[in-house]
Design a protein around this nucleic acid. Structure first.
Lengths: 340, 340
DNA sequence: GCCGGGTACTGAACCGTTACGGTTCCTCCA
DNA sequence: TGGAGGAACCGTAACGGTTCAGTACCCGGC
């Protein structure tokens, strides 16, 4: 029977037609994909674990581009892409167990997430993305530390010493406000943690006491959050000469806030972002671009590439400093250079 | 065995522990989701058919918001969301057959798409979205004709008679240029077709000869396309007083083009969009807002609501005219009102 | 001591497909 | 005419979990 549908070559066209006609007459709805998967041990789909209220992901341009890249890789291989429901609230690990997939991509999930643990128990390949490496698993990610260091050195070179930092949430619980050094070091969101520690390292080397640098955290990832974070930083220390944001969205919000206050960028205040999304490009933001779409595509390829030349494999993505129009020497330094 | 995992209540904790220990020792990886699906006849996932190079969807803010709404509804029900690979090039209907899902949402797919036909053959519920209704199937969509009519009447009321139209692609083949009346009427993308016919009807009633109205089509859906479409319209007829775009993205591109040319909006030229995306809001675009996220959510709910109070059901979404700052009376009319 | 009723556990059928080996039958060539 | 070889077709055994009927056992009541 199934041959009639899937192997036209194995039987004569005449018989095939007869079988198909009879099947139709009997109301046979075509081969059942689930039974097929059971038998062939292939689901034809890739699972994506985001562990976020999904809407969080859909509002982050970087996440969307990652999704696009991943979807493209899946499409190339004829595989579907299954978004796993994993709301942070109800710890519904069952959704991971129920997912009929040939492998998982895990993207930027907190280290201690139960869904991640559930994925690791499944006997299928897993690719880790924007997270700490896990033994024996393929890994894809940008060189966050290196990228941050380049950005930091750019700012240090410009003369900035008194800075403020605006970052995304560091752990599951909502915390809109200053993040202590302890909280920074123990952040469960890897990307944020590594960016902050790299910043701390670079500025410490330049003689800045990191404990004195105000780091403001925002739970929601939106330009509004970025704006309010910038406002809070300027309140904490009106003398800061630069606001470093760990994402472009936050930076765009900071730009808005500066405009609202009549603070000139970059003359009075330097603002930098991170990621290199399109809107940042349009705004001329000084930021670090990482190939987000490539990241998604690489993750998909890694998972679907069956040739497997010795797992685990690593894909380290190149980043590039984009010198836009939102960073300049601080006023004091400028005066030193061009002043009377 | 499976009881040990899924029905802790059915057996003594002691036996359960013994079973689980033995299972672990034997390297049993936990229940197989596919086998479970086969037996229970539930996949725990919803399929989404977009029939586009997926990247097309991921670059359209309206589509993303739809996706978000749909994902939210799925998440609420603990279902996964499977993106079906359906590139327009290779007509790979197999991907539809292979999808292990409990139902499909079909979103803005050309009427004659083979993937759509394949979906209809599957014995699972289907929700149609932003497309013509199909017998016996649930349907979700905005009142496109009504919304367009409100917009058209607004412009007619302002005094516009000599207009140009910028629209998205009307059929599968690439066609960057003027779309004949015939092509408009036979567009296989329903949304575009209904918006154009509604526009034609409204303006015809106002005494405009629709055959004389330049309608420019663009294959790619981007602000660049919107800009070049606007340029082409202004070349065809420099006297037009308004450019009506069938999407906000195209309208934003038109705004860019106007700025580039030094054409003042709305003094010299009125520009309107459609959809009501966030960027349109920020730009102050005069447009029609439809609840895109709600649309996705409604589609998901319809599909997953098992109470089924008499299918098929219809969800007609409300739209609202947003009077931004990009529409005003045409210069000639203005002069008539305020001139000497 | 026997029976009824409940609980704890076991075994087998079933879901629908694909893979594979076996059978038939036809053709071609010596 | 017989045998080899191949094409076309058919039957059946998994795949792995769920479900349900059925068995064993225990306890209390008469």
């Amino acid at each position: 029977m199934s041959n009639a549908y899937n192997r036209p070559d194995q039987l004569s066209p005449e018989l095939r037609k007869r079988v198909l006609d009879t099947a139709r007459r009997l109301g046979y709805p075509g081969p059942d994909p689930v039974a097929r998967s059971l038998r062939t041990r292939k689901a034809g789909a890739v699972g994506l674990l985001l562990t976020e209220n999904l809407s969080y992901a859909f509002r982050d341009p970087a996440a969307i581009q990652f999704l696009e890249g991943l979807a493209l890789a899946c499409e190339d291989a004829g595989h579907g892409l299954l978004l796993i429901p994993a709301s942070p609230e109800r710890e519904d690990v069952a959704s991971v167990h129920r997912a009929g997939v040939d492998g998982f991509v895990v993207y930027s999930v907190p280290d201690d997430d139960p869904h991640l643990a559930a994925v690791l128990e499944r006997p299928v390949p897993v690719v880790i993305c924007d997270q700490p490496r896990i033994d024996q698993l393929d890994w894809v990610g940008p060189d966050d530390e290196g990228a941050v260091r380049v950005l930091a050195e750019h700012l240090i070179g410009l003369g900035h010493r008194r800075i403020g930092v605006s970052c995304m949430r560091l752990a599951r619980g909502r915390n809109d406000g200053v993040a202590s050094v302890h909280r920074q070091a123990n952040a469960s969101f890897h990307v944020q943690r590594s960016r902050l520690t790299a910043l701390a390292a670079a500025f410490s080397e330049a003689g800045v006491d990191w404990a004195q640098v105000p780091v403001v955290e925002r739970f929601d990832h939106s330009t509004e959050s970025g704006a309010s974070a910038a406002a809070q930083l300027l309140e904490i220390d009106p003398e800061i000469t630069a606001i470093i944001c760990t994402s472009d969205i936050l930076a765009l919000g900071a730009l808005e806030e500066a405009r609202r206050r009549g603070v000139r960028v970059p003359e009075d205040l330097t603002i930098t972002g991170f990621d290199g999304i399109d809107d940042a490009d349009r705004a001329g933001l000084t930021t670090v671009r990482q190939p987000v779409l490539e990241k998604g595509r690489a993750a998909g390829r890694l998972l679907l590439d069956t040739s497997e030349p010795g797992r685990p494999r690593d894909v380290l993505l190149e980043t590039r400093l984009i010198t836009g129009t939102t960073a300049a020497p601080p006023r004091s330094a400028e005066e030193r250079w061009f002043g009377p």
